[in-house]
């Protein structure tokens, strides 16, 4: 199924493959809980190229490979690597092909991982390309919803925050359109989801765009919060007003259904008040913890 395939976009993962990843990730979670060590990827090497800063994604990919018994080689900063010497990404990838069995790339430009996959026969995993795709984050988001609420189909997912530049939400909304889910997109006009993403969604998808979070809170099963970056605003007052209107606090939690959850791809800054963390609805740290078993599943299915 996923064997030897590159995972660049969420659309590269078919429905059957997604179910297979969910099942394998569940198995991996059991292994992690039991403390057993695995040797599935013994002798295999993963190369990671992070041309953009990342903590969570990078650590969870590297942890996943090592938990599977494989090893990791990495280039952490573009400025210390061949890119600084003017090498193309195409050449970098052709070089890395000889050093590794699977290549993980994060890059500030959209389409970088797809380009990389054209220049090597080794599988490429996209760990985020500019404001483009972040498919493994999407898989772990879907896995989290499924694990927390039992299923994705029939649920109402409200996505709030930076829907314009946030790559995790582009992938996520595209993926949710494959399930029978309803999606509310809540953002100020300046950060609303771009037309080029909306135009990719099926016409019969239950999509509702609004600026008002409180209107949709009572029907929400999953509140997916994303970080609003200050640098996106030319007017600091506008930033303050947007941040103020979308801040998630205990009052927001109260307005939500009893069996609902709050997710966030992290890192968060001011979007969720820390006193929400102790609510059973706060699922964002559990979500982050799912990153390792989900990536273990993806790596082992690609290289299996």
């Amino acid at each position: 199924m996923l064997r030897n395939k590159s995972v660049v976009s969420i659309n590269d993962i078919g429905d059957d493959e997604l179910s297979e990843i969910f099942k394998t990730a569940g198995d991996m979670e059991k292994v992690l809980r039991s403390g057993r060590s695995l040797e599935l990827m013994k002798g295999k090497i993963m190369a990671t190229f992070f041309y953009e800063p990342s903590t969570r994604t990078r650590l969870s990919f590297e942890s996943a490979m090592q938990r599977l018994g494989g090893s990791v080689i990495s280039v952490s900063e573009a400025k210390s690597s061949s890119v600084a010497k003017g090498e193309t990404l195409a050449d970098t990838v052709r070089m890395a092909e000889g050093y590794s069995d699977i290549i993980v790339i994060r890059h500030p430009m959209e389409g970088a991982a797809r380009l990389a996959s054209r220049f090597t026969s080794k599988p490429i995993v996209n760990a985020g390309d500019g404001s483009g795709q972040h498919p493994t984050q999407t898989v772990l988001d879907l896995y989290t919803i499924r694990k927390e609420l039992g299923e994705i189909s029939g649920k109402t997912i409200t996505v709030v925050g930076d829907l314009r530049y946030g790559r995790t939400v582009h992938s996520l909304v595209m993926a949710l359109s494959r399930f029978n889910a309803k999606v509310n997109l809540v953002a100020p006009p300046i950060l609303k989801m771009p037309d080029h993403v909306v135009s990719m969604l099926p016409a019969d998808f239950h999509l509702n765009m609004t600026e008002n979070l409180s209107d949709v809170l009572p029907e929400t099963d999953v509140l997916y919060v994303t970080r609003i970056q200050k640098e996106r605003f030319s007017d600091p007052n506008e930033y303050q007003s947007v941040i103020g209107s979308y801040k998630i606090n205990l009052e927001t939690v109260e307005a939500m259904k009893e069996k609902s959850i709050i997710m966030h791809p992290l890192p968060r800054v001011d979007e969720i008040s820390p006193d929400v963390d102790s609510s059973p609805k706060a699922a964002y740290f559990r979500q982050a913890n799912n990153g390792v078993p989900v990536r273990m599943a993806i790596i082992s299915l690609i290289l299996g």
């Binding site: 193309t88 959209e110 054209r118 795709q133 135009s199 990719m200």
Partner: peptide, 29 residues
Amino acid sequence: CITNMKEPVQGEFSLLSKKPLLIRCNFCE
């Protein structure tokens, strides 16, 4: 989009719809 950088690729698109005309970049989507 990475294709606008000094990489050895040409712009490549898939035709999504003729009327209205809509194409998609095969790299940045």
